[in-house]
Design a protein around this nucleic acid. Sequence first.
DNA 1: ACGTCTTACGTACGTTGTACGTACCGTGTC
DNA 2: GACACGGTACGTACAACGTACGTAAGACGT
Lengths: 221, 221
Amino acid sequence: MARKAPEVAMRAVLTRERIVHAAVGLIEREGVDALAMRAVATELGVAVMSLYNHVPNKAALLAGVAEYVMGGMELPDDPGEDWRVRARTLIRAFRKAAHDYPRSMTVVLTHRIDTSIGLRPAERALAIAESAGFDGEMAVRIMRALLAYALGAQMREVGTTKMLDHLHQDPSEAFAQLDPVEFPHVIALAPELARHDPEADFEFGLDLLISALDGLPRASR
Amino acid sequence: MARKAPEVAMRAVLTRERIVHAAVGLIEREGVDALAMRAVATELGVAVMSLYNHVPNKAALLAGVAEYVMGGMELPDDPGEDWRVRARTLIRAFRKAAHDYPRSMTVVLTHRIDTSIGLRPAERALAIAESAGFDGEMAVRIMRALLAYALGAQMREVGTTKMLDHLHQDPSEAFAQLDPVEFPHVIALAPELARHDPEADFEFGLDLLISALDGLPRASR
DNA sequence: ACGTCTTACGTACGTTGTACGTACCGTGTC
DNA sequence: GACACGGTACGTACAACGTACGTAAGACGT
């Protein structure tokens, strides 16, 4: 049952973890489209079909990638802390993962996590909502709103960043070439739109949401 | 230049619009994975390579799909209306598109819209922010927060719906089988989590965000 | 009538995911 | 030690994919 380590040629055993890890690395280096079973295999120095001993198919591998990123999220929490701080910490953890694995993140956002790993942020958010004094249904709503923002802020940032990267000219100049009748505000705010501070944008929306939550009537406490 | 209509056999001309439309239909009926150039061709009763006279490649076709959904979004607006109402209307328009084209929506969220069509919601959001009395940089921030929520709420809903559909058992029963130590709140709130009203959830978060915006200090007005 | 341009099509190629059969190797049983 | 067995790695093979390329057929300006 236990595998003995080979004495001389340290031929590391193939395992689901190593496969998923290689897939994540490949995605981060060359993008999701570059993720092919053959590429993963050569990355690991094995034959393609060897992978299928550990992963049923490519979809499962992608699910593994999503799970890896989600599972790698550190969710530190101090229940004694103020709930606003805890909420911020939770949502920032999501953002950190998105920062560490930017390209794999789209896989996370696209595919579904069916293991319990995907529920960890939800559990945490519910706990925080409860500690803030919100009851059952309200707690669920709040959890959903928080996670929606975390997801959306990330998606939007990735999207606009990709869009700006695609323009090979100066972004604010590109904005200026739009139809001035249809896009007066975009053109007027071109400099502000071109220069963006993802961190600040993220925190702004987060603060907004939390302050709104703070103003909500509580069931208790 | 102008094409004359064939007299007897009404062989509708192949066009980019028709191709994109067929692609959208195919995606809605059979999912994104079923979208193949060959499938689109047979749907239209033409040869595969004929498509390439109107669409450079599959990526461009997907971009066309995203553009179609975005462009189909009706963005009615009455500048005389209260800005909160206008903001709600804008974000709801996004949601309506997501409701009409649920499966194509993931394409929209994944790919980037590089035509000006993708900027229409941004323009509108900026106009609304301005009418609410927010100045340049703040208007951009608000626009980003609003769009982030619109995106995220949609993604989260699609995600959880897909997850719940994947469970072939009763959802709240599935929740109950989780580790009670790790997921006490999820288990306790299983009924609330299983029964979800997407519309109400969406509106809840939207109200939250708008009320928070309302409380922000203005530069003018 | 003729050259040109546009569009539809068929063939063909490289790449993909993966079903299947086979060879190996460590372990438990006699 | 012999041997059957279960798991793992591998090679071959195939269907489906995106699309490069060459060709033919019609529409139009001249």
